[in-house]
Structure formats: structure tokens, C-alpha cells
Amino acid sequence: MSDVFIEKGGKKLRCGFTTGSCATAASKAALLMLLTGENMHHVSIMTPKGIPYNAEIVDIHRNDALEYVSCAVIKDGGDDPDVTSGAKIFASVCLTEEEGIEIEGGEGVGRVTKPGLDQPIGEAAINSVPRKMIRENLEEVLSLRGITGKGVRTIISVPDGEYIARKTFNPKLGIVGGISILGTTGIVEPMSDAALVETIKTEINVRKAEGREILLASPGNYGLTFLHEVYGIDENIAVMSSNFIGDTVENAADSGFSKLLFVGHIGKLVKVAGGIKNTHSMYGDHRMEILSDIVIDVAGYGLEKKILSCVMTDEAVRIINEEGIGDLVFEEMVSRIKKNMEEWTDGRVQVEVIVFSNENTELVATKNAHEWLSKI
């Protein structure tokens, strides 16, 4: 297999292949071995991205009557910190008397238990694109071999899938018993922003399908802990946006939410007050500059040097409060956060915001934030 690389952050990173590509390659190889009676140790498929995948085939098994063949492909996530890397993705294939391709989930492949996901409740968590990839590759093999009047059943399994899934979002999304077979391009791009945003979008869709009227979101574990320890909110209810605050707000609107309650630490959310959609430092920090500008706008205080010299926002909060202007400054800050978030959706979503600082101390909240929190 020739490696595929991308440039990111000035570094050359090796791409991997999705669980969907692995399941497709294993299914194709198993069917070819079933039809030919011969072992094969590599098989090629074309990913939706248009990049070929020449997969190594391992753990070949068949019964004496040649009723089925099973084999595996070892998942390689490239340079992405992917918890499924190294897992064996198995396919067990047999012919059926009815035409068509049946795709089922076996050991270690999760089952869908909540609405709003790619597959209906009760189905194996094998997403639409991998199902399409598997179906098309198996149909092609049957056609090229001149097989008519027969169908194929393939069962995808991941022996370590149930353990691996504990390290993923699956339990929170309502996928139980294993991992998901995923991938829209067939390729894993290292540290892919698109993959993270897609996960956030999926979780938002699940919350909408649960019938929730208000979407609760927070940038990370710090915010989830605050919600749980201060307000007793179940952490699993909140969508974790990471740095993708703009994408989260826009996806909330696209999923049909008209109300969004966003809870986060000032270190993240002050950036939103300055109109920053992605709060990762690589896209620009400007926390102290934004906070300093707000202080000047609302209080006219000359605290620029003190605030700009702060390393952490909690230190800046202390300085502002000691000057006795905390109420003015933080009310203006949270107002700007709310205004920017609502403008990102062209007014489709009403946003309320709670901002906290160090040691789980609520700093400021918009007018209806606590009322909404009581309804979640």
C-alpha cells in the first residue's frame, strides 16, 4: 500500500483508512476467496475520496464445505490518534439463495438505540457510506465472476469493539455493544477538523431526535464538570463543542433547534465576544485584547497594560473585580457573546449564555439562562 500524506501545521502527516474501508476490503476479499477457493493476502478497493486502498488480508478462516469465508483487515489510522487503530475488522461472507447484499453487524459492532443517528434504532451501527461501499464492491465481484441468481451476506465484526467503544462517543450517542463502522471519504485525515465537527453534528441530531427543545452545549470537560457540580446537570445531556463553537451554533440551527444554552469558561468564551468562531489558539488567541477593549468601551478605565500582561483570564478577572467594574465589564462581555452567536445563525437560534471562571464560580449569565437551565 502506498502511503497518502497531507500537510498540516507545517508537518507532513500520514493518512489512514476508515473502519468502513477496512470492512469493505475484508468483505471483498472474503467473497473472492469463497468463489475461487484460493487464499489471497491483499485486495484493492477504491475509496469514495478516489484514493485506492490496497489492504493486507489476515486471519483467513473457512469451513471444509466452503460455505463461508472470513478474514480481517487491521485498521490503520495513519498519524491520527484514533482509538480504533490496530483493531481487526472482520468480515464473514456466505452466498444466499436470494439476490441482493445483506450487511449485518456481529461481535463488537454497536447497535443503535436512539433516534437521530445514521441508521434506524435496532440496526447495526454500520453507516450509510460504508454500507454503499460494501454493497457496490460485492456486486462488482458477483458481476465480474458471472454469478447470477445468488446474493451475499456479510457479517462485520470487531472482536475488541466493545472495549474500544468505551473510549469513543458511542455510549453517549446511544450506540451500545461496540464501535461504529464509519467514514464518508474512506480516508482518515490526521487530526481532521471535519471529523470532529461531524461528531458534534451527529450528537446535536441525537439531542434533537430525543425531543429536546433547548440544546445545552459546552466547549469541554471543564464546562461539563461545572454543570454537574454546580447545577447537578447530567453531563451526558450537553454537547461538547471543543473549539468549534461557531460550527456548533450553526449546526444547532441546521438541526432545527431554536434555543441554545451555551455554558463555558471565560478563557474560551471571551474569544466569542470578539467574534472568533474557532477558539483554538492556532486560529488566534486575543483573549486579553478582547477583554481589554471591553473594559475601555464600558468603563473607560486604563487597565490595558495590566490586563494585557495577564497570562490567564482568571487573573484578569481578579484585576477587573478589584477595580469594582466587574458587573459592567462581564455583562457587556456576555451580551456580545450572545449577540455574535445569534448573528452566526442569522437569528434562527435564540442563545442564552453562562460564563464561569476559576473554581467553578459563575461569573455572569444572560437574562433567561437560569430559567432555561431549569427546563433541561
Rank of each mutant, 00 (worst) to 15 (best):
N205Q: 08
V176G: 06
K208L: 01
S157W: 09
G149H: 04
G149T: 01
G174R: 07
S143M: 06
A194M: 08
G183V: 03
P159G: 12
A217M: 15
G146V: 01
N221F: 03
K150L: 03
N243D: 15
T154F: 06
G161E: 02
I175H: 13
T225W: 01
R135K: 15
Y222V: 12
Y222G: 02
D247N: 15
T168V: 07
R166Y: 05
L144Q: 14
G232V: 03
L227S: 06
I156W: 06
I175W: 07
S180G: 07
K167T: 07
R212F: 03
L227I: 05
G232A: 14
N251H: 15
E235C: 00
E136F: 00
L173C: 11
E162M: 02
L173A: 15
K208V: 03
R145K: 13
S192V: 04
F169N: 12
G174S: 13
I156L: 04
L182I: 14
E210G: 05
T225M: 06
R207P: 11
L216E: 11
T199M: 12
I204K: 04
D234I: 00
G178M: 08
K132F: 06
M240N: 06
I156R: 00
V141M: 05
N170P: 07
I200C: 14
G178H: 00
A217T: 15
L224W: 00
E213V: 07
G161T: 00
G151S: 09
R212K: 13
K172R: 15
K172D: 09
P219M: 12
K201E: 12
A209I: 06
R145L: 04
R212Y: 08
M133F: 10
S242M: 10
L216W: 04
L173P: 05
T154N: 11
T202L: 13
G246S: 12
R207L: 12
D247W: 03
I214T: 15
L216F: 10
L196D: 01
F244N: 11
I155A: 02
K150P: 03
Y163L: 13
E198A: 15
T168S: 14
N170E: 10
T154Q: 14
K201V: 01
V230G: 07
P171R: 03
F226N: 00
Y163V: 13
I237A: 10
K201F: 01
V197R: 14
V230E: 13
G220E: 07
